[in-house]
Design a protein around this nucleic acid. Structure first.
Lengths: 338, 338
DNA sequence: CGCTAATTCCGAAACGTTTCGGACGCAACC
DNA sequence: GGTTGCGTCCGAAACGTTTCGGAATTAGCG
């Protein structure tokens, strides 16, 4: 390993000055700076990240810890998130590492251990539960972190979308089209975003003076198979829905599959709207007919999320960074008047 | 952050002795050891991983760097690998980090940079290409690493299976059953394992005095959709195969889908064998009828792989650790005599 | 009592980096 | 000529840990 000392010996300067030269400080002569830089590249010098971290107290490493899942689609989705985040964070000159815990493991302790043993500057949390113990733990430790989504019970930095509006917008659109029997394939209502969406849907119903059938709102993990089987079940019911709102494009894919296997036409026999996170694997343009619904690209979330986290790590976090991103709505061709 | 100095001040000992007490060294009194340990837990001491790494030159971190893929199944598969590896490595008291590069990025430089800037003890490589530049790079740097699979062009530590036997065993079984028109959905023959399997299949054909139809061997990424579409194409050919060998349970899933959509009976109309890596998401027991073929669980690969890598890092790597794991064969109910 | 040996402890150095507080030489200024 | 200021440079300390080489105390033994 080639160190600053090697360079300093070679060019006949002190370690201090070599460090300052490479660090781009002011009080070093142009010529010596060039000389040092040339020697550094000639020797193939790479600053030792460990030593630098020890001195500065910063490692430049941002971690995300997840418990693996048994569900292939959940994993594929997670992996897409990881890739988006990773790209954004390395664009900021930081390192992103993913730590996969055992399936179903409690990652709270892992967060704490990893932080307290140094070497991690901050964390990204996704899919917060109500009263999420990870958030409580990181707050207690004073560790920098940011959440995608939010836990209303605790005050912390987050990047989120307006999930109330997600539910309200789509339900309102369908109600305007005359639909009354509207099924809602919601995400797991153990998470805050799903509760918000349900509230939004309820608000739209109330606005139109319609009382929704509670049996038509389902709280399920948002995967393709879940979308398919639950849609089939709904269609087999005594009074099948005329429209379906899906929380996700993966769910929507399942809904489309169900209509196809039943020989139904979208949107004539069944209107479909879904919230689109902009996942590449389930792009709304790949649906036939084109899928309508609310849109909020995750990729835009990653850029503000990582930028905010960087600031938090730098220490300018006095008012908590809380961002609610914009939402758009596309009509698509998957919903029509009844 | 609570350090050794804090403990030493509290119990009235030197930092040295506190370190030795916690490290479990011999020359420290029973009583003082206990006293130190109690104080350490009382203060919530966690050794600083950075400082320890700097001194010992070991971080206990093993990294795997992958370029993300656009293919959801490839990602899900990769994620399953990551989870298996991660579990095994943390069981050894080491840390596993996954570094996801940009899709299609050259990870060679990333390996080099990460290693030369310290902080990474060793690497796990998967899916080696012929003359893999990552292997060449790590060999040049003298970095500890181990490969799942192998690159015959370079000498390195690896854990692999006998892929020649994979091809030979399954082809031999089908030939014994009287099949002659045997299709082989092989993995990408840009990788060594696929070439070996093809050689094995060819050897079995030669043993039976049969000359195979080259048009029946396909070199394709091993995913479900690829299995489905290519099987359909094969079945539509002038002389459709009576049996199919799939390189993978994901491919096999696609083959099953194709037979189903054509209304064919397995194994009466089409015999199917596949190599089974023991992936949970595509478990052979979940096939109907039960899938036959060669079996080699990846999970067993991870335990020897991580144990070997640990030894390599410790420095006992004089003879390269090269392991070829056992293979079994299950008949299943997916293949019958013609 | 003097010698050795065992037990228990500690100071200091080291890992590679950053940074604080100065030092040195030299020009400019009153 | 003394003071100030500027441009370059450097020694030393620090981050928290491990470890080498001893030192101090006690016990055993002739």
């Amino acid at each position: 390993m080639v160190t600053l000392k090697d360079i300093s010996r070679e060019v006949g300067l002190s370690v201090t000055q070599v460090s300052r030269a490479l660090g781009g400080h002011a009080d070093v002569n142009r010529d010596t700076r060039d000389k040092v830089q040339r020697m550094a590249t000639r020797l193939g010098y790479r600053p030792n990240a460990i030593a630098r971290s020890l001195k500065t107290g910063r490692s430049g490493i941002i971690a995300m810890i997840v418990a693996g899942s048994r569900d292939p689609q959940a994993n594929a989705h997670l992996f897409e998130i990881v890739m988006g985040l990773s790209a954004e964070i390395s664009a900021l000159g930081l390192q992103f590492v993913l730590h996969v815990g055992q399936t179903g493991a409690d990652t709270t302790q892992l967060h704490a251990d990893l932080y307290r043993s140094g070497g991690i500057d901050g964390f990204v949390l996704i899919g917060p539960a109500p009263d999420d113990p990870r958030i409580a733990c990181l707050l207690r430790l004073g560790a920098p972190f940011i959440v995608h989504g939010r836990d209303p019970a605790q005050s912390h930095a987050f990047v989120d979308i307006d999930n109330f509006a997600v539910g309200e917008t789509m339900a309102d659109h369908l109600l305007h089209l005359g639909h009354r029997d509207i099924a809602f394939l919601n995400g797991p209502e153990s998470e805050f975003f799903a509760l918000e969406r349900r509230r939004g849907v309820a608000a739209a119903f109330a606005k139109h003076g319609v009382t929704p059938d509670p049996a038509l709102t389902l709280s399920i993990p948002m995967t393709e198979p879940n979308g398919r089987t639950n849609t089939l079940r709904l269609l087999d019911a005594a009074r099948p829905p005329t429209a379906i709102i899906a929380g996700n494009t993966m769910l929507a894919r399942g809904v489309y599959q169900a209509t196809e296997s039943r020989g139904l036409n979208v949107p004539r026999d069944l209107s479909i709207l879904a919230h689109d996170d902009g996942l590449e694997l389930f792009a709304s343009e790949s649906f036939d007919p084109p899928l309508g619904g609310t849109v909020a690209h995750l990729t835009t979330a990653w850029v503000t999320l990582s930028a905010d986290l960087k600031q938090i790590i730098a220490g300018q976090d006095d008012p908590f960074h809380t961002r609610v991103l914009d939402l758009t709505f596309t009509k698509g061709l998957s919903a029509c008047a009844i």
